[in-house]
């Protein structure tokens, strides 16, 4: 996309783009209808999120009245105590497991993606086209398709319940490679690379001294997306980490739901797990991702558009 637009801009330098130029004459009526439709959809999208976020502030009794309501902070504290009390603080164990594996995976994704994306974008080597093809193919294939084969592979080498296979799998991130590839292809000025060559830098010297310092945005994007992809992955830890202590938050949450009084009223739990507690667990589980989504919104939106691949 970047190159196309740049080319268009270069071709028509005299035509100033006015902000109004795309506005279309339409009746007031049309505009009102459009605004109403968009607002109704926005409310429909936000209402359930608000209900989930507010649920931990309410009591079980308040929940049974339906709708949404704001409760009190002491209810949140009570709910948090229940979550931490579940299976002797297992929730915190899951949190740290997830953090270790997902951060490890995101860092590995950066280490693997940035240099390989650079090489594919800027160097000529045999097998380059095949590598690009394989990367694109693995990028568009949903990762669930390889989960059971990965399970067979990992259990064959007796590494179930180990964090290492997950870090490696999260670190292998074809979309990150693609982002880096696009970045170096479109955003790295060739003059700088040539200047580096003139000064006698080797190819890896050019990469480390010139390309990497200019690739902060690509590094951030790969890190963000890699983190979110790992954090929200369910199927992989579900099959590769069968032990409760080595589980991740996403999988642990399911375990909490299925052993809660909500699903299993007969089970003798040491804590109360009803809707407010489960909602709090779900919200805390997603806090890091939500923080990234809101803080890095611009970055992620741009990245998603690159991911649209409609270059």
């Amino acid at each position: 996309m970047t190159t196309d637009t740049a080319a268009q801009d270069a071709a028509m330098p005299t035509q100033p783009a006015t902000p109004q130029s795309r506005a279309i004459k339409e009746g007031k009526f049309g505009k009102v209808i459009r605004t109403i439709v968009m607002s109704v959809v926005a409310i429909a999208f936000l209402y359930p999120i608000l209900a989930l976020l507010l649920a931990p502030t309410r009591t079980e009794h308040s929940m049974s009245l339906g709708g949404i309501a704001v409760g009190s902070l002491s209810n949140v504290q009570f709910a948090w105590a229940q979550i931490v009390g579940f299976d002797n603080g297992m929730f915190l164990q899951w949190f740290s497991n997830t953090l270790i594996m997902v951060v490890g995976g995101a860092v590995l994704a950066i280490i693997l993606s940035i240099p390989s994306g650079y090489a594919m974008a800027r160097l000529r080597f045999s097998g380059r086209n095949a590598l690009i093809f394989a990367t694109l193919l693995l990028m568009v294939m949903p990762n669930t398709v390889l989960t059971i084969p990965l399970f067979l592979e990992v259990s064959a080498v007796h590494l179930l319940n180990s964090f290492w296979p997950l870090i490696l799998i999260f670190g292998f991130y074809p979309f990150g490679v693609y982002l880096s590839f696009i970045h170096f292809k479109t955003a790295l000025p060739m003059e700088l690379v040539e200047a580096g060559r003139m000064d006698g830098l080797s190819e890896s010297g050019i990469f480390f001294r010139i390309a990497v310092p200019l690739a902060r945005q690509a590094v951030a994007l790969v890190g963000f997306f890699g983190f979110v992809a790992g954090w929200t992955n369910f199927f992989l830890p579900y099959v590769l980490l069968p032990q409760t202590q080595s589980s991740t938050l996403a999988v642990g949450l399911l375990q909490m739901i299925s052993s809660s009084q909500l699903i299993n009223p007969e089970e003798g739990l040491n804590v109360q797990l009803y809707m407010p507690e489960l909602a709090l667990a779900a919200v805390v589980t997603m806090l890091p991702v939500m923080a990234i989504f809101i803080a890095a919104q611009r970055y992620l939106q741009r990245g998603a558009m690159v991911g649209a691949v409609k270059g």
Binding site: A42, I49, L52, T232, L253, T285, M290, F293, Q297
Partner: peptide
């Protein structure tokens, strides 16, 4: 706003 629910991926 339409983008927000995407932050609640998976289990949440």
């Amino acid at each position: 706003i339409y983008y927000l629910p995407g932050a609640l991926a998976g289990m949440t």
